[in-house]
């Protein structure tokens, strides 16, 4: 496997908030076209790991390599920061994030939300971006909401719009941070359908989720995090079908029973 096949490569990542150690040495790779799901109970560090990947959080220790290019750091420990702002922006524009609470910009219409970053950050011409944005809105099935404001959409529609916004960046990978956790079971399905169709297209995705069904269905690789460490990982059939560690067995029992 050549280096460039790895879109994201995270090694020995440590992250703490003051006394609280959230990540205690996590290593994770996502190859091009691979769907990696991160599961684990609340507080296991899975969202923090995802947020470290696009540098919304700064790990105190460990390396992050984006398409063969290691993130440059300055300082150490609590004072550690990315050294190169333009590198940070380049990585972020290539790893588009979908948030649990959708986080659509509330003062813009859906279409403006989707067009915003490709136009203002990537500097692509407005007309091209508009065409692309409309195509992605159609893909997620909310073309008719293009001129509505986020507050006037249901949660499921908002999340689909947020996915269209992420897609319109034409990123190397999509990062999902519990994309269905804020949704009613009914609305959850419409988002899950979109994520499944993206997985089928062969997009690289990192998905943090509580939804074991989703993780089982779409993933190539499942990572079970427990207390800041990877407890178990593997193909979904192995992780869900034949969990080895006691902790994962317990976890699956409690989540599938719920």
């Amino acid at each position: 496997m050549s280096n460039t096949d790895l879109v994201i490569s995270i090694s020995d990542l440590h992250k703490s908030y003051g006394q609280l150690d959230v990540l205690k040495g996590v290593t994770l790779n996502a190859k091009r076209g691979e769907v990696v799901s991160l599961i684990g109970s609340s507080g296991s560090g899975k969202s923090t790991l995802l947020r470290c990947a696009n540098l919304l959080e700064t790990p105190q220790q460990g390396d992050i390599v984006f398409k063969g290019e290691p993130v440059a750091w300055k300082g150490a420990g609590e004072a550690r920061r990315p050294a190169d702002t333009s590198q940070v922006l380049r990585i972020r524009t290539n790893l588009s994030m979908v948030f649990q609470q959708f986080n659509l910009w509330s003062h813009m219409t859906i279409l403006q939300n989707v067009m915003e970053a490709p136009h203002s950050v990537l500097g692509r011409p407005k007309e091209d971006v508009k065409m692309a944005a409309l195509a992605y809105l159609e893909k997620v099935g909310i073309t008719e909401k293009a001129d509505s404001y986020p507050a006037h959409l249901s949660g499921g529609q908002q999340q689909r719009a947020a996915i269209a916004r992420a897609l319109c960046m034409e990123p190397e990978a999509l990062l999902f941070d519990e994309p269905t956790s804020a949704l009613d079971p009914e609305l959850e399905q419409e988002v899950i359908q979109v994520i499944k169709s993206l997985a089928k297209e062969g997009r690289t995705m990192l998905i943090v989720t509580h939804d074991m069904r989703l993780a089982w269905d779409v993933s190539d690789h499942v990572v079970f995090l427990n207390k800041g460490l990877i407890e178990e990982e593997g193909a979904p059939d192995d992780v869900f079908g034949h969990p080895k560690s006691e902790r994962l067995q317990q976890f699956l029992k409690s989540t599938l029973a719920a």
Binding site: L56, R92, M97, V121
Partner: peptide, 16 residues
């Protein structure tokens, strides 16, 4: 904060 963090996540500079 979530609105601002989203802008960060999409690569906007502080000024943007």
């Amino acid at each position: 904060g979530a609105q601002i963090e989203t802008a960060d996540a999409y690569g906007m500079t502080r000024r943007q």
